[in-house]
Amino acid sequence: MKAKNQRLILALLGLAAVVGAGLLAVSGLKQEASFFYAPGDVAQSGLPLDRAVRLGGMVQEKSIRHDADGITIHFIVEDGKATVPVTFKGIVPDLFKEKSGVVAEGRFQPDGSFIATNLLAKHDERYMPPELAGKMHKTGSLKP
């Protein structure tokens, strides 16, 4: 065997080992590397009550309620599998709205609700001009 071919095989074996190690590490991190819990995750695995966590999902349509104090809001986060009621006191990001993504930082309560200390807005991968979005909104094809 020529030395060049030997080196090629060695390099490919090395590459396969590195990629394999990477994939193993990544699959081991499956849970830990997630940025937030979805309502469906908590419904399945139980509430993480012992620590501060993030809860992410879509803000349910017509679920946002404002308290009389003007800065406390209540809304429901859903992911198609489960829902979690969230309470937050503070200023919400501009992109926070119904049928849009949200990531809430805070703690689960024993009753299954969530008290948020900070809200982040999560938008999806679609970008379009307002006219097109308006048209799609009218025909009902702009789905969250």
């Binding site: 991190l29 499956k30 590397a33 938008h123 970008y127």
Partner: peptide, 22 residues
């Protein structure tokens, strides 16, 4: 793979979710 704050890919082999005007 993971829940993330960053949105998913816009441009994939199946096309683009960015409107042609943008």
């Amino acid at each position: 793979w993971w829940n993330s704050l960053h949105q998913g890919p816009s441009i994939t082999l199946r096309g683009s979710t960015i409107a042609p005007e943008l």
